[in-house]
């Protein structure tokens, strides 16, 4: 089973350009600028004292440089509201899993390279992963399963599972979790969300410097309050390296439909990425897909 467009041979990466002597400094200044811009857009200055611990943590990435390149500052915004939408109803589990994987990246960020293969990554970012979802979701897709999460790299002990009855309760629970400053990331599952509550969540995320993610239904209208919006679909996996009959690492087709601070929107970059759980707990652009991804990145 070849992925679409996957007939090409494995790509040769272009040698990276020679780094600018002040590369690190430029990066730092870019981060500062991005922060300033965001604060201005919310119309107020946020003191660093109002949240504990997490503020200094930065560098939440997907781990695939090609995809991170789509984002401003080459990293996910850790103080805003993101939306994850499945491409169709059947892709909903993939969207949920993608949210869990982003949480994994959030917890274990910055330590992707030096890790033994069998253990859960040591957590850098303190705090909980708060997972708020209505009971209906749990019935449809099943309950969160610890051993499976552990296999993905997410420490189940850090997970707080909140079951709600109504969308209003989900929104309330998300906002409370953001306000407590004890969450590393807050994830909520909603069918649809209108502008006002989404804006509230975005403001709470910015005020408490905690990222929030919403997994919404495929067909519901997207809100303008989010800073990023991902569209997720499943993609056929490559054969397992040791067993050609068996599926390999999970693959997702990512589309970045919206991203504040970039030109994304007119052209949505898209790529197929693979989650490598056994070595690095990070995304990488699927082999055979890298050429298209870099193409898309250069277009964007």
């Amino acid at each position: 089973m070849c992925p679409p467009g996957g007939g090409a041979v494995a790509p040769f990466f272009a040698p990276p350009p020679a780094p600018h002597p002040d590369q690190a400094r430029i990066e730092r200044l870019r981060t500062v600028l991005a922060g300033l811009e965001r604060r201005q857009s919310f119309g107020r200055t946020l003191g660093a004292a109002n949240s504990v611990g997490l503020a200094a943590q930065a560098g939440w990435t997907l781990g695939a440089p090609e995809v991170d390149g789509w984002l401003p500052g080459c990293q996910l915004d850790a103080e805003s509201l993101g939306e994850i939408k499945p491409e169709s109803y059947a892709d909903t589990p993939a969207a949920l899993v993608f949210a869990l994987l982003l949480a994994t990246r959030r917890l274990g960020m910055g330590c992707a390279d030096n890790r033994s293969s069998s253990s859960i990554p040591p957590a850098r970012s303190p705090g909980l992963v708060v997972w708020c979802w209505p009971q209906r979701f749990a019935r449809e897709s099943g309950g969160l399963y610890g051993p499976g999460l552990a296999h993905l790299g997410l420490d189940p002990a850090r997970l707080l599972r909140v079951e709600t009855a109504t969308p209003a309760e989900t929104l309330w629970a998300m906002e409370e979790s953001l306000a407590s400053s004890s969450a590393a990331i807050v994830i909520g599952c909603l069918d649809s969300v209108s502008l006002t509550p989404a804006r509230r969540l975005a403001l709470a995320a910015a005020a408490h410097r905690t990222p929030a993610l919403m997994v919404t239904a495929a067909r519901s209208a997207a809100t303008a309050a989010t800073s990023t919006r991902w569209r997720i679909a499943t993609a056929p996996s490559a054969p397992h390296p040791f067993d050609p009959e068996a599926p390999g690492d999970p693959r997702f087709k990512l589309t970045l439909e919206r991203c504040r601070g970039t030109a994304v929107g007119a052209v949505s970059p898209s790529s197929v990425v693979e989650w490598s759980s056994h070595d690095a707990y990070r995304f990488r652009v699927a082999a055979g897909m890298a050429d298209r991804a870099s193409e898309a990145a250069s277009r964007a």
């Binding site: 504990v52 705090g127 909980l128 708060v130 969160l144 399963y145 610890g146 999460l149 189940p156 002990a157 997970l159 707080l160 599972r161 909140v162 079951e163 709600t164 009855a165 309760e169 309330w172 629970a173 409370e176 979790s177 407590s180 400053s181 004890s182 969450a183």
Partner: peptide, 23 residues
């Protein structure tokens, strides 16, 4: 802070709805 959060969540939603996974 996490203890405060779970108190508030389970106070409003009910303690059976705020769960953790244990091996």
């Amino acid at each position: 802070a996490a203890a405060r959060l779970v108190d508030r969540l389970s106070g409003r939603l009910g303690s059976s709805r705020v769960m953790r996974l244990l091996p």
